[in-house]
Design a protein around this nucleic acid. Sequence first.
DNA 1: CTCAGTGCAAAAGCTTTGCATAATA
DNA 2: TATTATGCAAAGCTTTTGCACTGAG
Lengths: 154, 154
Amino acid sequence: MIPNSNKSASRKTRPTRNTPQLNLSGTGMRMTSQRALILEIVRQGHFDADEVYRRAREKMPRISLSTVYRTLHNLKKRSLIEELHFDEEHHHYEVKPSTEHHHLTCLSCGRVIEFQYPLARLIKRNVTEARDFEITETELRVSGYCARCREKGK
Amino acid sequence: MIPNSNKSASRKTRPTRNTPQLNLSGTGMRMTSQRALILEIVRQGHFDADEVYRRAREKMPRISLSTVYRTLHNLKKRSLIEELHFDEEHHHYEVKPSTEHHHLTCLSCGRVIEFQYPLARLIKRNVTEARDFEITETELRVSGYCARCREKGK
DNA sequence: CTCAGTGCAAAAGCTTTGCATAATA
DNA sequence: TATTATGCAAAGCTTTTGCACTGAG
């Protein structure tokens, strides 16, 4: 159902050691099955800790919530994932994108659409207050109502 | 200080009932001393519930934390204040601004600078994904290091 | 073989809720 | 006076932490 991560499909040599998704080598973190799983889940969407936990348990029933929290915390500390702040509850996570990207949220259906837009540059150029700042991050949250929901009556 | 909503400017009839700061009349909420105080505090900056509570207690030692939470919750529900989502802990609140404004946060000293910039318009024009959206809110968080902190060694 | 990572359970924060009392409209 | 709001205390959630055991390197 989910694109498989361990596929040494037709290879018969020894499995290459590059981890399927994100690679932890060089970060000082050991790669464990739990971490691989959590990373794989975070790659699939924006989830909060509890949702990651629920999904993880489907494949690894004995994984603990503390491991989820600790792993998310560690990955964030090493900048491998990012913490997002939606209007809703708590934090959501996603693997760190290489380019600036932002979020458009429909307040009616909850759909979240990602888009890219180079705002740092623009802000630095046009906002006096930001001129002397060394900008390391920008996060734009835009909310409103998507076309689909607007048509659908109301 | 705030453009008054109930204006009987030079009328000399009975004392107008406008509350000093934000006006709750017409919202169905009763004006109590606690709410006046909380509103006054929120006007002073971006605080989380606990900080509002600490400040409120200086003037009204017996105010309860639940009242703070309930009041913030009610004000938010009626859109008199807004909930902000910084990187840090929990929610912060501020009185609802009339124009789009955003936040620049120094990761070193924690200073938060507000600035205005009409992003909705720009996003709607330039981002395909947003074209069919009816945008009701935009919140941009920019973080980095302010000039002051960058000079200060490191 | 070592030390980082895990699971479990308990603790710690933050936020909400029930209920009797106090205060507003 | 009729409600609505408050204070207090207790409950509910989410997140963190201590510890002994397990497993990656």
